[in-house]
Design a protein around this nucleic acid. Structure first.
Lengths: 133, 133
DNA sequence: CCGGATTTGTACGTATGTATT
DNA sequence: GAATACATACGTACAAATCCG
């Protein structure tokens, strides 16, 4: 943690992201506790938590109160064919939508708009859209 | 701010979200400064900032250092037709991707994967995907 | 264009509550 | 029930970017 040009929490996020990608922390495994990361990297808990928030917002880890953060396993994606003149919008959900769909923070939604009006909402990490041309 | 069952920062986020949606804070307009919000709602600056972070992550506001947060105007979306056997993945970008594409935090990306390999990346709030059936 | 005032960003500390283990 | 771990929320200080006269 010597680079002084970049915020500490981003440097730590980069470090942890590498370890997730290179398999040091495999999918489903727990990260060290916030306190352990504080001790290991000599940073305050707030800095640690900000780094973890970055990774959560990238969809890389899951956080649960009382339990250590875990590396998010890639969920199985179902095919979602676009039909007819449907249009598809990707965006972040409102908090209500997130709660209703039981989504984790940091996961976008896909909103499929139908011609006659109305729309369906999908967790973006659980579907894969394919053209039906 | 009387409801004690919900965190203060979420209650404040709900309040500000309402005012954005109902037009009290129109698109492009600045929100009150963090200090003004502290005074008005009798909360610490950290609580204010967490509420603003919620709205930023929902794509509702933009934050810029040194300048007050502003209501994000809906960017004009370009049509993005899905062709052939292309597949489309929606997800949050890594920080590098976000910087390379000059995206604001809280905006998902659409990754279009081509049959032969390779993929294109789009800011999800700047494109609208349509089926080409 | 400069410089001060304002505003947001980073980083630390402390205390207490709540969920999980 | 106890220990562990994360969540909320208050505070302080200083840095960096923007704004404005």
């Amino acid at each position: 943690m010597l680079n002084s040009y970049e915020p500490l929490y981003l440097q730590l996020a980069d470090l942890l992201r590498e370890r997730i990608i290179d398999g040091t922390f495999p999918a489903g495994s727990p990260l060290p506790s916030e306190q352990a990361l504080c001790d290991e990297h000599r940073q305050s808990r707030m800095t640690i938590r900000r780094a973890l928030a970055v990774l959560r917002d990238e969809g890389l880890i899951m956080k649960r109160r009382g339990a250590p953060s875990t590396v998010r396993p890639r969920p199985a994606r179902k095919a979602l064919p676009l039909r007819g003149e449907q249009r598809l919008i990707s965006r972040m959900p409102s908090r209500k939508e997130r709660i209703q769909l039981d989504l984790d923070p940091g996961v976008p939604v896909l909103e499929v708009r139908h011609v006659g009006g109305g729309s369906d909402l999908y967790a973006a990490d659980r579907v894969e859209v394919l053209s039906t041309i």
